[in-house]
Write a protein that binds this DNA or RNA. Sequence first.
DNA 1: GGCTAAAGGCTTTTT
DNA 2: GCCTTTAGCC
Length: 788
Amino acid sequence: MSDLLSDLTPPQRQAVTTTEGPLLVLAAAGSGKTRVITRRIAYLIEMGVPPWSICALTFTNKAAGEMRDRVEHLLLGEQRTERDERRIRGLTVLTFHALCARLLRRFAAISGLPGLKPDFAIYDAADQTTAVKSVINDLNLSTKNWPVASVRAAISHAKNELKDATTYAASASDFAAKQVARIYAGYEQALRRANAIDFDDLLLLTARMLRTNAEVRNLCRDRWSYLMIDEYQDTNHAQFVIASTLAGEPSEKPNICVVGDADQAIYSWRGADISNILEFEERFPDAVVITLGENFRSTAPILKAADTLIKHNVRRKDKPLFTSRAGGQRPRVILCSNERHESELVVNWFRSLSQEGLPWREMAVFYRTNALSRVMEDALRTGGIPYTIARGTAFYEREEVKHALAYLRVVANPADDVCLERIINTPARGIGKTSLVRIADVASASGCPMLEVMRRIEAVAGLTPRAVAAVQRFVAMIDGWTGAGAFLGADVPSSLHELVERVICESGLEKHYESQASTSGLSSDADRLDNLAELVSSAKDFEDEFDAVSDPAAEMVFSDDGPSVDTPPLLSMLRAYLESIALVADADAVDPEQGTVTLMTLHAAKGLEFGAVAIIGLEQGLLPHSRANESPDDLEEERRLAFVGITRAMSQLTLTSARYRTIRGLTERMIPSVFLEELGPTVNISDQSGDAFEQDSGSWRWPTTRASPASPSSLSDPAPQRFGSPPTSGAAADFPVGCTVRHPQFGLGQVISVQGGSNARAQVKFRQVGVKTLVLEFARLKRVHDAT
DNA sequence: GGCTAAAGGCTTTTT
DNA sequence: GCCTTTAGCC
């Protein structure tokens, strides 16, 4: 027991040993958060708490897997025996979404959710888009006026707030909201018909089930008496409801421990709400609050930079960030000419670090958007540096893999119309658009799945005999794999990977890509065949692990009387396989064992650490992102994102900013990120962007002394003139926040914020074109003194 | 019905 | 720049 506590700081120890009652741990970046949670679980078990009564929730599978490994390691050591294994039997460490999927499957039957069967499919973003799109079409609306992406976002947002279609419709006041409500309702119908739920439903339906169904609620509360939640700052309302309902009544002082850092909240766009941290103390007034402030990860100069940056956030509780790691280099900022130059600089830096003995796996590149990875990749590849991109979902998003998976999903859930439409004529088998529309019409008229209609295809009017025969062959093919749904008989595949193999072969997918590869000779078509083969081996791997799970009770949330008694083993394995694919996250692909440089988005970087970090693309419009400048809150979230990136670095940090960047085929002049300026003298700046721009290089130098830290009103005040440069006609002072301005192209607008010194920028909300960031010096803005 | 080529549109971040 | 949709041909 003393082993578990001896190397902890006093506050860490307090967090580990405060096992009873509600506990809020405010853990600064690098303060040993994961360590505290894993120690706490191990400590509880050492204290005699049964492992099956402990539940820890995370946001990614990788975090969950790591947490489980570390607890095992703490309790069992290297060589473990059968008897040791029992000490952690039944311990629940899952992502929110995985827990919800299991609870819903287990309790679908008694949850009172209409039409939801335990074998439901989980729709990912692409499936959602397809479904929403077809609903919009069915309602005779145009996707021109009702862009699928924004409708989907609106629905998703509503679900995160636990608003179902009916509630949403009731609160819809304007025309647009009413139309979205109609689409929402249609989308829900489509999901129910397909026996499917989307990502947001996982949370929404679980929250609702726990709230309304006392039986389920009590079963869960009886099962878990210790609840722990990681990255609490990124929980949304639905997750808050799930967590607090699982925990129990506040009056009973339940053992719920949440760990988070408001400065690392980067998912507000997904409905995450920092106020959940505040709400926690409201809901559990007896909560003990522990602050972990000491950083054990980064050197002092890196921490200083991070602290300086995050202090610009007004909406935050200031808390000290400190380290006892003295020494270390100041972070570098490199201004480069374009994205190619940028990636070369990073490659050269990595190579020199490698020569100094730093292993590749200790290096990482972070960027705001995935699109930035491509150029970086090219440079690493030509530079001969091994790298991995943290995109766990990328493989499953490939066309050929999606096709194969769609076949499998129809096998697992014959009602899945989205998948059926995807595969019905892929590869081409003579069931064209006309036939498809006929079948879809009959299906929606009769409210039954398309595959059902296809079984009675003779009854569908207006099809050519050829189409009828093709449909019959298609149905027979599916039935051949499933033994007509019984999964019995000699002709039915006996294992998961055999099923996958047969699907790829008998569906004609393999032949389809083979012939494409031979006619086109493109390597991409050969890649597709490789990927299909890869899918088979991934199924094989899953199978082996599934069989090897020594403790099924650890995998099942409630093993006693699950609904799986009469489910054929192959079918339940297939469903588990598909579910594991549906719930992979990009960050899951990070594997430090690989010995390669890691490339990832800033979002995926949360929770990780690297010896040397490069953050690229520190430019206005990219970081902060242009789509996130509607409000000061958005800008603060972007700043937190930069903060998360900076605090991942243990000893070396480089930030790059390109003057020109080609985005979507267009080369644009970029403005260095306002964050670079905010970092002030905590970073060393070197301008390597070349001579061509010497004439305006004055605007690229940042002050050697910092302006006073942001005051609460600083966002709405014009920035002070810091550099002693002569005031120009475009000086910030001429455009106070709130004033009305005219731009030669964009027309009339209102200034929402102004930042900066020598090249001051203003965010202006234009009536015609929305919010734009403009450099005052160049923008030729005119102030309009309107009478109103 | 199936294929190709051209035009159009659109991109933050993710479980 | 890439992906999706559409028009036009076989």
